[in-house]
Amino acid sequence: MSMLEQLTHRDRVFDFLAPVASPVDVRHGPILYMEGVNVSFDGFKAINNLNLTVDDGELRCIIGPNGAGKTTMMDIITGKTRPDTGSVWFGSRHNLLTKSEPDIASLGIGRKFQKPTVFEALTVFENLELAMAADKRILPTLTAIMKPEYRDRINEVLETIGLQQLRDRLAGILSHGQKQWLEIGMLLMQKPRLLLVDEPVAGMTEQEMERTAELLTSLAGKQSVVVVEHDMGFVRSIARHVTVLHQGSVLAEGTMDQVSNDPEVIKVYLGEEA
C-alpha cells in the first residue's frame, strides 16, 4: 500500500528506486537516532520510550542490569525486531524501520553478537572473506574471485586480531576468546560506519581484554562504536560516554564518573556490585 501512496508524491524519488547504499548523512551530528521507541513481548515492556542518539565517531558504552533491554535495542537497530512505536534513523537519511537485516548491514551497521557466532565449519580466512564488504547478491557471489587486494585486506585484519597463525584452521577449534576476536575481525571486514558490539570481553583473559580495549578505542573516530558490556572495569577503561539502561529506558547518561555517582544508578545497578 505504501508503495502505491508514494506514486502520488511527484516531487519524491520512490523509495524502491533510490539506491540502497546511498551515503549516510551525518551533517547534523548523530549517526544513530532513536526516539520514543517501544517494544513489548506478550505484554512485557522490553523497551519503554527509549531515546538515544550516538554521534558520528563516538565510542559509547551502554550498561545496565540483566533485562534492561540492551540486546533488544541492538535487535531493533539491526532490523531483527520491529518496535511497536517510535523512530530509528541511521544518519538523517535512512529510516531503519523500513529496512531488512541485509539492507541494514550493507548500509554500514555491523553487529557482534553476545554469544560469539562464527561459522565453525569454515576456516578463519573464509570467515573473514564472507564478512568482507562486497557485492553480496547471488550471481556476483557465485562468480566472485579472490583478488590480491582482498587477500591483503584479509591479512591486514588477521594481523589486527592476531590470528595469522590460525588462518587456515577451522573456526570451530578456536578458543572462546579467539572466537570473540574473529567476530570483531569480521566486523572490521564489513567496514561499517557503526559497530554494535555486544559483550566483547566475555570469556577473555585480562590480557585479551586489554587488547580489545585498545582495538575498540583505536576504531572510534573513524567509526562509531556502541559497546554493551557487563564488565565495569572494562567499561571504565574505554568509556568516555556512558549510557545506563534500566527497564527499557535511559536512566542516566554522562561520563563514567558522573554516572557512577548518580544515586539512581547506584541504587539499580552499581549498588548490587558494591
Binding site: T78, E101, P102, A105, R111, V118, E126, L130, Q190
Partner: peptide
C-alpha cells in the same frame, strides 16, 4: 561458503548483508 554459513548460523549471515 555462504550456503554453509546459512546452514550453520542463519541470523549471522543475514547481519553480514547476505539475503539468506
Amino acid at each position: 561458503r555462504v550456503s554453509i554459513a546459512c546452514r550453520d548460523a542463519e541470523a549471522r549471515t543475514r547481519f553480514l548483508g547476505y539475503r539468506v
